[in-house]
Design a binder for these strands. Structure first.
Ligand SMILES: [Mn+2]
Ligand SMILES: [Mn+2]
Ligand SMILES: [Mn+2]
Ligand SMILES: [Mn+2]
Lengths: 221, 221
DNA sequence: CTTTTTTATTTGGTATGCCAAATATTTAGA
DNA sequence: TCTAAATATTTGGCATACCAAATAAAAAAG
């Protein structure tokens, strides 16, 4: 008997929540399999199990959806993940681009009260170190009014809020470029040819590819 | 592929370490099976695997022993367990008798640096909330010079240091009686008939059975 | 030393979560 | 509409970590 039924299940729910957010027309097994790096046959089995547990449902067009119960569970896992990330950065002095994998482990630890105590200890943070909002204890999350940097307007000023891609490679890249939540930027130039942008932050000017710009969320200043 | 090879293995090593400490003549499968609440056949399989991994060895008389490598691994797991317990009590305000099960989960989380950062954050604690010494980052543990309360002498003063039994039932009992590490006591009376003791702490006097006294470690004051 | 009891070991099974390959089935392109 | 490509499903397997029951071996008791 594997001791951790939570673990796998919670990872599926979380990834399905994140894929749903992206409003793909139809969420299928293959998308989930890619996101979790699993075989579609494996995903099919688990989806069936989660449907039986009333955490997922299949719509008329056979796309996969979270039920209310499933959505709540996903959000509570995301809550744990983000609170642990705050802990790791604010208390243990990890860098914001180092904490994701560790939080992937910590998020599955279950104990009465743990998450709420952690939240209190951390001083009820609203955002995690990557700029993402932390769901409250009921699983309510603040919708976050940001736009992609790729749709920014030349000459305007913005503040970096968060990021679409949470992979190590991307976060390491951002860290190298010293791009992080809270950074104030000005759009200097838009290059139509490759959709790259030139950006000014303080005295430092740099160029970002379209691919990068699509994964950075900003707000007008 | 189960994601957590650590988990089970570390639990075996830890329990074997603790059983070894008790210097039973010969550590066998059944003792381990009882301690972990598993079937002896299961234990046998795992012991073989751990022998193959050079974490355990079988002595001439077939008793089970940790190798140096296994002992170190056990001690590092105990280190993580006890540091997390300190965190839960000192930072998250759990009571000292509530944290063991949670620490059982947290102790298996592996990440470069996590334990040492946690230790630094907690201010390099030497004892956990139950009075047990915390091994250092090399797995060195301070031998802790205590005696069992059951061998205390009438009229003398002692300080409660730690406990042999770490079960919830026992810790809950201690908590109800307000017995915890650091408590100063005087032995008022020893009852020869049932080996129970009468004890004075401040103005409060109470009686403890032999079974309880065997599980409380003290030092002379 | 023989019998009984305890301990160790073997054997055949279970559940979870995973995979690859074969075979539907669906969807979309021509 | 027909067909090719994409997707879903089935099937048979694997690894880990468990168990129960049968048998073998060792230890203790008499
Ligand atoms: Mn993260
Ligand atoms: Mn994050
Ligand atoms: Mn403990
Ligand atoms: Mn402890």
């Amino acid at each position: 008997m594997s001791h951790f039924p939570n673990h796998s299940e919670e990872n599926y729910l979380k990834v399905i929540f994140k894929l749903q957010q992206k409003k793909l027309r139809k969420l299928n097994n293959i998308a989930i399999a890619n996101a979790l790096d699993l075989n579609p046959a494996t995903v099919l089995e688990m989806v069936r199990k989660l449907v039986k547990k009333n955490l997922l449902e299949l719509k008329e067009d056979k796309s996969i959806q979270l039920t209310e119960k499933g959505k709540k569970k996903a959000l509570l896992t995301i809550r744990r993940h983000r609170l642990w990330e705050v802990f790791l950065v604010n208390k243990l002095q990890y860098k914001w681009n180092e904490v994701h994998d560790l939080a992937e482990q910590l998020e599955h630890i279950e104990a009465k009260d743990l998450t709420d105590r952690l939240e209190t200890f951390l001083g009820h943070p609203v955002y995690d170190p990557h700029g993402d909002p932390i769901p409250d204890k009921n699983g309510k999350i603040k919708a976050h009014e940001t736009i992609a940097l790729s749709s920014a307007i030349k000459g305007k000023h913005y503040i970096v809020k968060s990021f679409a891609d949470t992979s190590d490679v991307f976060l390491d890249y951002l860290s190298q470029q010293e791009i992080k939540p809270g950074l104030k930027i000005k759009i200097v130039q838009l290059h139509e040819f490759d959709q790259s942008l030139e950006i000014l932050s303080g005295k430092k000017q740099f160029q970002l590819s379209q691919k990068v710009a699509l994964n950075i969320f900003i707000q007008p200043l």
